[in-house]
């Protein structure tokens, strides 16, 4: 059985710092934010939901990036072979083949492909396939301040990626899109009170 690589974002440990956003751009020479850290359920970044006076404030961060879907609509949409799905499951955008038609940008239901207006080509997370091929982890993983990003192989999950105690809580964003994402999330734990 081959590898099927993916990431787990442990939102219990995500501090919303956006080091991943910066790291991704540096590693890949991107201009767009190919990882975007959202503060859930609020219009203002870094602010909580709920009510101060009622004592039910909550704030949860959720990094968004390419989901490396098992059934990737972007690969199907691209007529120029710029987007391919590797045998190890990584959906790679080869910028040399990109014509800037932006069909993939529209095709991705997650909005994970971004258009670089300066270079007129698309940009997206390639899971640092160039690093994985050298036996290294994706750059965002080693730069994550909260150590909240786990890299691994869904076929043989090991170490933190095996999520021994919280396996049932793993979820993907918008499963109704039916693209079978390989980027999964562990939610922020509920406060236990005093």
């Amino acid at each position: 059985m081959g590898s099927q690589y993916g990431l787990i974002f442990n939102l219990e440990r995500c501090i919303g710092c956006e080091a991943c956003t910066v790291a991704c751009k540096i590693e890949n020479n991107f201009i767009t934010d190919t990882i975007q850290v959202k503060t859930l359920n609020t219009i203002n970044k870094d602010t909580p939901t709920g009510s101060f006076l009622q004592g039910n404030l909550r704030m949860e961060f959720q990094p968004h990036t390419c989901n490396h879907c098992e059934d990737p609509p972007c690969v199907e949409a691209c007529s120029f072979n710029a987007l391919i799905q590797r045998d190890d499951g990584i959906v790679v955008l080869n910028q040399d083949n990109c014509t800037g038609c932006q069909t993939c940008v529209t095709a991705c239901p997650y909005g994970a492909i971004h258009f670089n207006k300066d270079s007129n080509i698309a940009e997206k997370c390639n899971l640092c396939s160039h690093r994985i091929d050298q036996g290294l982890e994706p750059f965002c993983v080693i730069c994550c301040e909260g150590q909240a990003i786990y890299f691994g192989d869904w076929n043989t999950p090991q170490g933190k990626f095996a999520v021994k105690d919280r396996k049932d809580e793993l979820y993907v964003r918008n499963p109704e899109f039916n693209t079978k994402p390989k980027i999964k999330y562990l939610p922020l734990k509920k406060p236990r009170g005093l």
């Binding site: 501090i15 870094d46 909580p48 004592g55 404030l57 704030m59 949860e60 922020l188 005093l194």
Partner: peptide
């Protein structure tokens, strides 16, 4: 368990089991 005491509901508070604002 972790408790945060702060006038602001910060990221630290968001990871806490109780928050005293």
């Amino acid at each position: 368990k972790m408790v945060t005491i702060d006038p602001r509901f910060t990221v630290t508070a968001s990871k806490s089991d109780a928050y005293l604002g």
